[in-house]
């Protein structure tokens, strides 16, 4: 397979999942900061909630790594 297509696929895997993560974090982050403004002791849970969608981009990274390792190395 052409190297360019492999790179494009890997880039899309990370890029699209990063967009999804960003969208989710924006929504969660706004709500979490509102909660922290009223109850500062919730800061730990706020960090936790904001960090949860990052799994999406990590999984995207895993897919990109698999694309590069399995297809790029072949």
């Amino acid at each position: 397979m052409e190297l360019g297509l492999i790179a494009l696929g890997a880039g899309l895997a990370v890029g699209l999942s990063a967009l999804a993560t960003g969208y989710a974090q924006a929504r969660i982050g706004a709500a979490a900061m509102g909660a922290v403004a009223e109850k500062p002791e919730l800061i730990g849970r706020a960090i936790l909630l904001v960090a949860i969608p990052e799994t999406l981009v990590i999984l995207g990274f895993a897919v990109a790594a698999m694309i590069i390792l399995l297809l790029g190395g072949a």
């Binding site: 960090i47 936790l48 960090a51």
Partner: peptide, 10 residues
């Protein structure tokens, strides 16, 4: 630090 915290918390 944030990511290490998250790995612990979640």
């Amino acid at each position: 630090m944030i990511q290490a915290l998250r790995l612990h918390y979640v």
